[in-house]
């Protein structure tokens, strides 16, 4: 039966480490927004069809000359 003492300690220790992880993730703000990340993951980096057609490598997009807005 003395094995139980060790097992008890292990189980509490494992559960407690999950609790610590939970507390850390909450205070880190990971639960502040539970909706946006689920959408964000579905976005492609750039419109793929355009890229294939124009054969532009991904990197160059952001180097493009910006066009001015408004005025």
């Amino acid at each position: 039966m003395s094995a139980l003492f060790i097992l008890l300690g292990c189980s509490i220790f494992i559960a407690a480490s999950f609790l610590v992880a939970f507390i850390w993730s909450v205070s880190n703000g990971q639960y502040d927004d539970d909706y946006t990340p689920s959408i964000r993951i579905l976005f492609d980096d750039n419109a793929p069809i355009d890229l294939i057609e124009k054969n532009i490598p991904n990197k160059n997009i952001s180097n493009k000359k910006p066009i001015t807005n408004a005025n």
């Binding site: 976005f43 492609d44 750039n46 419109a47 355009d50 890229l51 997009i61 493009k64 066009i67 807005n69």
Partner: peptide
């Protein structure tokens, strides 16, 4: 036009 020039038509 702004979006299409920046490949954001998605």
């Amino acid at each position: 036009l702004l979006l299409s020039e920046n490949n954001l038509c998605n």
